[in-house]
Design a protein around this nucleic acid. Structure first.
Lengths: 328, 328
DNA sequence: CTGAAAGCGCTTACAG
DNA sequence: CTGAAAGCGCTTACAG
């Protein structure tokens, strides 16, 4: 079943069918209607891959995510996907679990599939060079969430330094002087967030104390472990800002286990404002960077780049907003 | 840059290049090496779409998910994707947000893209007929999580009735007679889980009480609302089984707000055993259906169907296991 | 406004 | 074991 069959049914040439299918206005309405009628009666299905091959275009976008288990990335992905589908694209999705080998593999696959563009949340340890590599393939790229060196590439992320500074400030304003920083693994995002933490401390004239900063994977388990360490080592600390909401959820669990009530006994701040933060136990005070919108912006940036490859470097940085709930 | 360039570089015909690229053993090792060398020096990239078009095959699988915001589905997706990628496929992902129109649209797109198979978690309200429709397209289909009528189609899900019965039994064995059922929206899964709830009650000689069953969206917000309703209307009820873990997390939040401690003051059971359940506040007692493995099984079923279209109907039903933590 | 012709980058019988 | 030829289902100048 091809356009040839449709052409025969509608008594036109296959060029005419093709033009109608593309919504061209070169064809008389009457003829176009006849073609569409034929499409319907035959149950013809457009073969987009053949069309893409011939026209050297593509309607698929590759998106590579490294941690879907984290609701933050799930929300980013949903926002991104929605926007892309609405623009007539379909997403080739791959999950790396922070595995660089896997990331290279799926990137190659997306290249073989002739993706029109790639939205990448790079796995930890990704070389900054990757942005140049993808560019050399001729595939538009938008990097998400984690910066990849200081080169020139399209990016959608958040102002991490400012955000964590706001969270830390808030704790300081409520009288806390000894404030923990929990979770996060080495990488650009941790560096930026830690910088915000230190900046807030500096501004308040509080000395930075290494033992208050406990690093771990940005997961619930990581948050749980870091909070337990903090409680064991420094039982007098009564406040902490977390690397992310997910880390904060784990910390909440550890707090609960110790019979400590977040909010009244201990002030805890998250980061991201994932949907779950509104209904955690207790509801989490956090820094809102609108994960879904971040994904939508990434999509817009990529789409713009595809349309006009010579655009100057695009950059979206979510402005953090403090959201105060019960935990801190 | 095509196989013609590679052929020229390696001094062979393009047929030979094609054969080497496909790993055929028809080509002498020496020649094959020369071709691979040419591929490397030229930086040639295989055009899989052209190959797929010509050979009428496809290495993409469509997967449609309706609620990625729910960690259960995220875990299913990750398991599914991992298995598919390892088998040499790449996934075309779409998110429906329970929107039937959107679901129809992405299904059509996947058809136009010539997906080799489709893994579908149907949106609520999907007509049972859909399995036949997709079959009529000639595309292998595996339905996930939610059954779609009683027809003959490949399916991967869990034994919901048995699972909820186990959770309810557990509560009954601990002396509870008035047990709430919280959350869940009308659909096959809710019916099955409710059936397990009633079966456990029946077996224990406890009358079913309509006012203890409170329905709502299967989200944290839904769980929060249903628990608040339960607490307001029936303050003497001290136990509940939830439609899902996510609902239970919301319920935990409402419990906390009322100063009620899950575990000692109120027994709460979840369903799914998502990763988060281990580190909620308090850690959630739940029914484990291994979401990730469910996704892997869905992949295996689909892959088997693609390999052998005439296989008899395949069905995977996760056997639920009780996981007792702090909440109940 | 519509048709005949060439071609996108591959694969696959078919010869040799 | 390797090459010449046809063709997958489309699009796109080019005529008319």
């Amino acid at each position: 079943m091809t356009i040839l069959d449709v052409a025969a049914e509608a008594n036109v040439s296959k060029s005419t069918v093709s033009l109608v299918l593309q919504g061209s206005n070169l064809i008389r309405d009457e003829t176009a209607d006849r073609v569409r009628e034929a499409v319907r009666t035959l149950g013809y299905v457009y073969n987009r891959r053949a069309a893409d091959l011939r026209s050297k275009s593509s309607k698929t976008i590759g998106v590579v995510i490294n941690d879907l288990m984290n609701p933050f990335f799930a929300e980013v992905l949903v926002g991104l996907e929605r926007k892309l589908v609405d623009a007539g694209y379909i997403v080739l999705m791959a999950h790396t679990s922070e595995d660089l080998t896997r990331q290279d593999k799926v990137l190659l696959t997306m290249r073989e599939q002739h993706a029109a563009g790639i939205a990448l949340c790079p796995a930890l340890g990704t070389p900054a060079l990757l942005t140049k590599t993808v560019k050399s393939w001729g595939i538009p790229l938008v990097v998400m969430v984690r910066t990849l060196g200081t080169g020139s590439y399209d990016f959608a992320g958040s102002n991490n330094t400012q955000g964590v500074q706001m969270a830390t400030d808030h704790l300081i304003q409520h009288g806390h002087r000894r404030i923990g920083f929990l979770g996060g693994k080495s990488g650009p995002v941790l560096d930026q967030r830690l910088e915000g933490y230190r900046a807030a401390l500096d501004k308040a004239g509080i000395a930075y104390d290494d033992s208050l900063v406990i690093s771990a994977k940005p997961t619930r388990a990581g948050g749980y472990e870091t909070m337990k360490s903090l409680l064991d080592l420094l039982p007098k600390v009564k406040a902490a800002v977390c690397y992310s909401d997910v880390v904060a959820f784990g910390a909440l669990s550890a707090l609960g286990e110790h019979g400590i009530h977040a909010g009244s006994d201990f002030a805890l701040m998250g980061f991201d404002n994932v949907l779950d933060a509104e209904h955690s136990n207790p509801p989490l005070s956090t820094v809102d960077i609108c994960p879904g919108e971040l994904g939508e912006h990434a999509a817009s940036i990529l789409l713009a780049r595809i349309e006009r490859p010579d655009l100057s470097k695009q950059r979206y940085l979510a402005s953090p907003k403090l959201v105060l709930r019960q935990s801190g």
